[in-house]
């Protein structure tokens, strides 16, 4: 039998000891995690349904593990008694009025028992105490609710599908959306409105000049003042004019706001196609009206009453032209 160096035995011993320490360390840590080594007391709680709770599952208070399930026993057809190993350290914090409920650790985690504190004073639990329980929000109930909302969701999506199907099938809407002529019409009528208002403004300038002349008491003033019938007629005309220009003003501003709100012809059309048609008609009417007004003003120029005034106006204009022409020529030079 050969002699073995004792150093080998030392190495072997070290090897085995390190291995055993690793193993026992792991087992001890696992045991501590499952509260095998801490001193504990046993309390109990009766449930109608423990949802697959197993011996060794965690018991938590405020999310912190304070014990484990020691034993699960069927008392009768509707009662399951669960014995809980509660750490001594946690005993002062678990009151006798605490409520136990079955829960899960995350959506797919282990089943656990949650202890919830109740308001109101109560002494700490003692070994053998019975804790009150609450029917858990079981995952089954949760799934039941899910089922209901799921069905609703199915209905909703079906309706939505029908609607979109109809929308897809409706030619009218797509034609409306595609119709370029409509937009052109609108643009044209707006242009008309712009010219109409420009003319209106010219006309009102004329009126302003006229009234200015009247106020200065020149030219036709005497006639006008003596001829009350004419004055009455004139007043009537200007009243009507003022009214129609107010209406026009309102119409244009309304149009403007509508254009501001809706970003494009589509909106305007969608709000009311009838309105646009009316608008166009109105514009035509306004155009006709202003044309008529313009004509009546021309007629007015030719009436002898205003001839003198108008002639003075023309002279004045010619003078101004003569004054500005040399300046323009100098500028050109």
């Amino acid at each position: 039998m050969p002699e073995r160096p004792t150093g080998n035995y030392v190495k072997l011993g070290l090897f085995v000891v390190v291995g055993l320490v690793c193993l026992l360390g792991t087992l001890y840590l696992l045991g501590r995690q499952q509260n095998l080594f801490s001193r504990s007391l046993v309390v109990q709680a009766d449930f109608r349904n423990v949802s697959g709770l197993l011996t060794g599952n965690n018991v938590r208070l405020g999310g912190i593990t304070v014990g484990t399930v020691r034993q699960i026993k069927l008392l009768n057809d509707s009662t399951v008694r669960v014995f809980i190993n509660l750490n001594r350290d946690a005993q002062p914090f678990v009151r006798q009025n605490a409520v136990a409920a079955i829960g899960t650790d995350g959506l797919v985690g282990n089943t656990i028992i949650n202890l919830a504190a109740r308001p109101g004073p109560a002494p700490p639990v003692q070994p053998g105490d019975q804790l009150r329980t609450r029917r858990p929000v079981g995952i089954d109930d949760l799934l039941g609710t899910f089922d209901k909302s799921n069905k609703n969701l199915v209905g909703i999506t079906q309706d939505l599908r029908q609607i979109t199907g109809k929308l897809n099938g409706s030619n009218a809407l797509w034609e409306l959306l595609d119709d370029r002529a409509l937009a052109d019409n609108l643009r044209r009528s707006l242009r008309n409105a712009a010219t109409a208002s420009a003319r209106l403004s010219a006309a009102s300038q004329d009126v302003a000049g006229l009234t200015g002349g009247v106020r200065r008491g020149r030219g036709p003033l005497g006639y006008l003042l003596t001829d009350t019938a004419f004055a009455g007629q004139l007043g009537h005309v200007s009243r009507r004019l003022a009214g129609s220009s107010d209406t026009l003003n309102a119409l244009v501003s309304g149009l403007k706001t509508q254009l501001n709100i809706g970003a494009g012809p589509l909106h305007t059309i969608l709000t009311d196609t009838a309105a646009s048609r009316q608008l166009r008609q109105t514009m035509q009417h306004v155009e006709q009206g202003t044309a008529g007004f313009s004509r009546s003003m021309d007629a007015l120029q030719h009436t002898f009453l205003l001839r003198g005034y108008l002639r003075r106006q023309q002279k004045k204009q010619a003078r101004e032209k003569a004054a500005t022409a040399p300046v323009a020529r100098r500028n050109a030079d």
Partner: peptide, 16 residues
């Protein structure tokens, strides 16, 4: 025993 310990050394420690 002595042979067992020697074998443990050879088989265990030297395989580490």
């Amino acid at each position: 025993v002595a042979e067992l310990l020697h074998q443990c050394y050879v088989v265990g420690y030297q395989s580490l």
